[in-house]
């Protein structure tokens, strides 16, 4: 456990010292503040628009961080051979994978906390109301990011960063539209495309279950039990993919 913590803290430090992440955080900040400008166009809807855009920005910028850092996470260590001296230490490979994952998860948590704080402050400045559903939405965004990170780490152990990023990006897009693959139009039935699309429905995590933007923007309450089970669903996927990443990395030739 101690070694996992050491690797995680070092990963977090690496990410914080990596200036590329500040650029992403800056982009997120610009988007959050820019939402006010869009709010002006939508007369009387500004608070709702600010919430909606800010939550979307958290989700997208968080996902971009998870994908681009995550798909490089192990690959970079292998490519730059930094892990030669680390894995020669008396430590298990899974400890390294989990440590790297937790380091990135900690970074995303900092990102989300920062963006939430800015959003809340902005809404309060605009004299808007923050209801619990806003924080429920933020929580599920974080769970979604954990899931995407785990998938990115898995692909980082097995594929190049570009291929990994493309696959995770596709999973992100398909994951927000899984109902489309479930409720296929009648003309697809019986065609070769049907089993392919159905398979996508079953193998891609349903990310729309973790999406409460619309509820948060409109202050519509959500049952905490739903939030709990949605979080369990997302965490379950994340754990499964992280376990697969550990298995893939265990037998990796360096």
């Amino acid at each position: 456990m101690k070694r996992i913590q050491v690797v995680a803290l070092n990963t977090l430090r690496e990410a914080i010292r990596d200036k590329a992440l500040y650029v992403l955080a800056g982009f997120a900040l610009v988007t959050i503040l820019g939402s006010k400008a869009i709010g002006w166009i939508s007369v009387g809807q500004d608070i709702k628009i600010v919430k909606d855009i800010c939550l979307a920005a958290m989700s997208v910028f968080g996902a971009l961080t998870a994908i681009f850092v995550g798909t490089n996470l192990l690959y970079k260590e292998i490519d730059k051979k930094t892990l030669y001296t680390i894995l020669a230490q008396p430590m298990e490979r899974y400890e390294f994978v989990i440590g790297k994952y937790l380091g990135l998860a900690a970074l995303l948590l900092l990102d989300i906390l920062f963006m939430t704080a800015v959003t809340v402050a902005w809404i309060l400045v605009l004299k808007g109301e923050i209801s619990p559903v806003f924080f429920q939405a933020v929580l599920l965004i974080y769970v979604k990011l954990l899931l995407i990170t785990a998938l990115s780490v898995l692909l980082s152990a097995a594929a190049s960063p570009i291929l990994g990023a493309v696959i995770v990006f596709c999973a992100y897009v398909f994951g927000h539209a899984t109902e489309v693959f479930r409720d296929l139009p009648p003309q697809i039935a019986g065609t070769p495309a049907e089993p392919v699309l159905k398979t996508i429905y079953y193998i891609v995590p349903n990310l729309s279950l973790l999406d409460l933007h619309a509820y948060a923007a409109n202050n519509v309450p959500v049952n905490p039990l739903y939030v709990f089970w949605a979080a369990v669903y997302g965490a379950g996927w994340a754990i499964a993919m992280l376990a697969l990443a550990c298995v893939a990395f265990e037998n990796k030739e360096l």
Partner: peptide
């Protein structure tokens, strides 16, 4: 290793501390 690779963003003191903590 033949070509030692490290985390470039660390200093030698931090690097040695990192490996010490791993042990």
């Amino acid at each position: 290793p033949e070509q030692p690779y490290f985390y470039e963003y660390l200093t030698p003191r931090e690097t040695v501390t990192f490996y010490s903590r791993l042990r």
